[in-house]
Amino acid sequence: MSSAPATGTVPGYTAGTWKADPAHSEIAFTVRQLTVSKVCGLFTCSDITIVTSEDPLGSSVTATIDTASLGTGKERRDDHLRSADYFDVAKYPTMSYRSTGIRRSGDGWAVDGELTFRGVTRKVPLAVGANGFGPAESGARRARFSATAQISRRHFGLRIPMDGIGGVVGDKVSITLDVEAVLQK
């Protein structure tokens, strides 16, 4: 799970089970609106576990995200996003991701996995980087991982208003994760 060459080692790489530190992690999304602007948002509540194995190809990740924890900085928009039109948090309070494999991808790594959102499960690969392993001031061993993906709202059953004529909200959603994780004992 690094951008290091396949034959090299990731400095400080440590096998083990890691839990995301919510205070130092971010799950963000971006979607086009009215074809010229974009809306950015964050999910503030999640549970992410990363298991690094001696061979990085044997590593895995699972994540559960509280859909009600989304925020875009505009209360009215956030309430609409939480409604049945979009996230439907009353019916689907969480979305989840489960890796199914890890592979080399160019100069980096890709995590193949499945995202379950609004009761629909689709394959969503993540472009992943391990940004560092090392001790924190607290003495706990920490690691930083980043990941990006793009999903289609249509694939998860979300309607696209004014589809075909420039849509109010775009179909493609970019997802960015920046996760600082703590090695579990």
Rank of each mutant, 00 (worst) to 15 (best):
L177W: 03
V128G: 14
G164T: 11
P56K: 05
D85L: 04
T116G: 02
I50N: 02
A130V: 04
G16M: 03
V36S: 04
T100I: 08
I165T: 07
G106H: 10
F87D: 01
E54K: 10
E54P: 04
I50K: 03
Y92Q: 03
T14S: 12
G16E: 01
S69F: 00
G73P: 08
D21W: 02
K19N: 12
S53D: 15
V51L: 11
S69C: 01
E114A: 13
G170V: 07
F29M: 01
R122D: 14
G8L: 14
R118L: 11
T148Q: 13
S83L: 08
G106V: 10
S59R: 12
P135M: 12
P22Q: 07
A140I: 00
E75M: 06
A20M: 15
S60W: 06
V10H: 09
A143G: 10
A68H: 01
T17W: 04
D178W: 07
P125F: 13
S2A: 10
S46V: 03
S96E: 11
R144V: 14
I48Q: 08
V120N: 03
A136N: 15
E54T: 15
G167P: 06
T52R: 08
L57H: 06
Q184R: 02
G166Y: 11
P135I: 05
G106K: 09
S46L: 05
D55E: 06
V89Q: 00
I151F: 09
S37P: 10
S60G: 07
V31L: 10
C45M: 09
L177M: 12
A136Q: 11
G170D: 06
F29T: 00
L177H: 02
V31Y: 12
A20K: 13
V51Q: 12
A136W: 00
G106R: 10
S46P: 04
E75N: 04
I175L: 15
V89L: 00
D21F: 01
T148Y: 08
V128L: 12
I27K: 04
D47H: 12
L126H: 06
V168S: 14
T121F: 08
T64R: 10
A136G: 15
A68C: 03
I175D: 02
F156T: 07
T62I: 10
H80T: 11
T176G: 14
D55S: 12
E26L: 11
W109V: 08
A68D: 03
I165R: 04
A130N: 14
T30D: 09
K123H: 13
S99T: 04
